[in-house]
């Protein structure tokens, strides 16, 4: 089910031309000809793959959420029981809280860090190009590998890498991921580290689109750096930020891999998120009905969140 929420992502990642749409003359309804069939023919392979690998499983998932899944004996319709089970399970509610904290924290953290990086690394010199590539590496590295490396870095003894650095400045060894009180925070930090560079790239693209003349005239007017950011850069970045926020809204709720490889949801369930709970119920506990119901709820929540982020940012843009 995780991949299902990719659906809306595809539609929002399209470049959004801010002007031009309304100026186009209204299209007349064309007669159906052989020619109009051709684009559809080209689309068939993609659509077919989409139906088989995305929409098919999605519909199947929705069906499974209403039955007691027994692949061999035959499914048994049980109405909303699976949903009741999910919503009355304390562990799911805890997982929801963790997901919101983790998703929110990660989205905001990655946004701030990504913006900071973009402002620092904007430019066209070769040196910057090299640094940007280096900074971007976490995005292209497999999350499983990243998780494994961070687990080594965060090894909770004096001999652990980060602990040994802390030891040099007199801070005692930290439990990091093994301590239920701090584990969620460190998972969040790793998540921010992974996703900030991606945001950086989107924001860099936004920065590149700002008219240089604005900076020059601002310099002539003698504005401070902060004023330049406040009145030129941030307003111009609005479309880029809205893309970043939309992506964050979609991603944050279905967060799974980072948590799974770093802590598996532990210790003491302190980092358990919605998807790790779904995974352990569905594939470890063999309760596919409940797992499907939870996934459907996640899909609905993601849709609502995505649509509301779009509505808010659209309204802001229109108000401009």
């Amino acid at each position: 089910m995780t991949t299902l929420s990719n659906g809306p992502a595809v539609s929002v990642e399209r470049p959004r031309p801010s002007t031009g749409m309304a100026e186009r003359p209204p299209q007349r309804r064309r007669r159906f000809t052989r020619r109009s069939l051709i684009p559809w023919l080209f689309l068939v392979p993609g659509l077919l793959l989409g139906v088989i690998f995305k929409f098919g499983p999605m519909i199947e998932g929705i069906r499974m959420s209403f039955v007691k899944v027994q692949p061999f004996l035959g499914d048994e319709f049980i109405g909303l029981d699976n949903y009741v089970k999910v919503l009355s399970d304390q562990r799911f509610l805890d997982a929801l809280a963790h997901t919101v904290v983790l998703g929110g924290g990660q989205a905001i953290g990655a946004l701030i860090l990504g913006t900071g990086l973009a402002l620092l690394l904007e430019g066209s010199s070769r040196r910057l190009w090299f640094v940007r590539t280096a900074v971007f590496l976490p995005v292209v590295t497999a999350v499983a590998v990243v998780g494994e490396i961070w687990r080594i870095l965060l090894f909770p003894t004096e001999s652990g890498f980060i602990n040994s650095i802390l030891g040099m400045v007199g801070i005692q060894a930290q439990g990091f991921l093994s301590d239920p009180n701090t584990s969620l925070g460190y998972v969040m930090a790793v998540g921010i580290w992974i996703s900030a560079p991606y945001n950086m790239v989107i924001i860099l693209a936004g920065l590149a689109g700002i008219d240089r003349a604005l900076y020059e005239s601002a310099a002539v007017d003698g504005v401070t750096t902060w004023q330049r950011l406040r009145y030129i850069v941030f307003p111009a970045l609005r479309p880029a930020l809205s893309v970043v926020l939309t992506l964050a809204a979609i991603r944050s709720l279905r967060i799974f891999t980072e948590v799974f490889v770093l802590t598996g949801g532990g210790p003491a369930g302190s980092t358990e998120v919605w998807m790790t709970r779904v995974f352990s119920l569905g594939f470890k506990g063999n309760d596919l009905g409940v797992a499907s119901a939870a996934s459907v709820l996640l899909l609905v929540a993601t849709l609502v969140l995505t649509v509301s982020v779009r509505m808010v940012s659209n309204r802001k843009e229109r108000a401009r």
Binding site: R91, P180, P267, A268, G269, S280, K284, G285
Partner: peptide, 18 residues
């Protein structure tokens, strides 16, 4: 036994982590 195993493991993990 799977659900029992999970219930016990969850709480044991919690008791041992603190």
């Amino acid at each position: 036994f799977l659900p029992f195993r999970q219930i016990a493991a969850d709480e044991l993990n919690a008791m041992l982590s603190d």
